[in-house]
């Protein structure tokens, strides 16, 4: 049975998609492409990133470009940059503690508290997501999760907090966020990886850990930057094999072919380790900078790609 493209399925199955992956796998790019894809499906979409990450800021600028490709999508897409301290102050204001918020900031207590109370920064980000989800203003909320090896810490922070805080607003926030993460119709985790040895082994490990921890339902795994290779005729392959002289075209082809083969092996390994996991593949983009057109191209790809499952 040919399934729906895995990303469409994920977008349609849950409002909040948390896009996560190790640094350098293209997580922010995939987040932006996923947000364009969701908006392209006609959904009111929020792309949420954390402030102070320069690549994220550049992507946001790219999305703000006035390109024709964005004309249909822009009205549906909003971009947010979150700062945990600001969320806390906003939160205190909403709960009638505006003056406390100001005082906490001026005395430097906010930074101490957010350090002393572990997981509070993560919780604040997740609580903001929950608030956006509950507002009903968005059909899709795509979070470009903080790049760190601490995804599990990030996801388990509400639980950790609930364990140490028995009462108070923090407790109720932790509970609400846990409920959001635990409900597969409200949120899903999308892991982004590369078809390289280390990312593959780390991703499958993270996947299994999240699965056994059960804090959040898993969506598809997206493998980014796959090398494309134009197929040659059998005669051409034979000619390349027999070739004894130096030829630039042959060298370049062998290089790309060997990279593609290696990626294929790593992808097969990922499938072997994660049987039953839905997977999407994203091609390598021949550009070092990503503008709106490249992002829209990636979104198009994610929307059209047939499922690539075991």
């Amino acid at each position: 049975m040919a399934g729906k493209p895995p990303l469409i399925e994920a977008i349609e199955s849950a409002t909040v998609l948390i896009i996560a992956g190790k640094g350098g796998v293209g997580k922010s790019t995939i987040s932006a492409a996923a947000a364009i894809a969701a908006a392209g499906l006609g959904r009111r979409t929020a792309l949420v990133g954390l402030a102070h990450s320069r690549p994220a800021a550049e992507l946001m600028r790219a999305l703000g470009e006035d390109a024709p490709v964005m004309a249909a999508i822009s009205p549906k897409l909003r971009i947010f940059e979150l700062r945990p301290e600001e969320i806390l102050v906003e939160y205190l204001e909403d709960h009638g503690m505006a003056s406390l918020g100001r005082r906490l900031i001026s005395t430097g207590v906010v930074s101490v508290v957010s350090t002393a109370i572990p997981g509070i920064r993560e919780l604040l980000v997740l609580a903001k997501l929950k608030q956006m989800e509950r507002s009903g203003e968005f059909d899709s909320i795509i979070l470009d999760a903080p790049a760190s090896g601490h995804l599990l810490t990030f996801l388990s922070s509400p639980k950790g907090l609930a364990d140490i805080a028995n009462v108070g607003l923090l407790r109720s926030q932790s509970d609400d966020v846990q409920a959001l993460l635990a409900d597969p119709s409200r949120s899903k985790l999308v892991l982004v990886t590369l078809a390289e040895e280390t990312p593959v082994s780390e991703t499958s490990q993270t996947y299994s850990e999240v699965e056994s921890q059960g804090a959040i339902a898993l969506g598809p795994v997206i493998t980014n930057a796959l090398q494309g290779l134009t197929p040659l005729s059998p005669e051409a392959h034979k000619a390349l094999e027999k070739l004894e002289e130096k030829d630039d075209r042959a060298d370049a082809y062998r290089f790309v072919a060997s990279k593609a083969r290696l990626q294929g092996e790593n992808l097969a390994e990922l499938r072997r380790r994660l049987p039953g996991c839905r997977m999407a593949r994203v091609p390598f983009i021949f550009a070092t900078g990503l503008g709106v057109n490249e992002l829209a191209g990636l979104a198009e790809h994610l929307l059209s790609e047939a499922s690539d499952d075991n």
Binding site: M97, L100, L104, I164, V167, G168
Partner: peptide, 14 residues
């Protein structure tokens, strides 16, 4: 006083 208010947010035990 600040601490007391923080308790309202995070819980006294924390």
């Amino acid at each position: 006083a600040v601490l007391k208010t923080i308790s309202r947010v995070v819980g006294a035990e924390v």
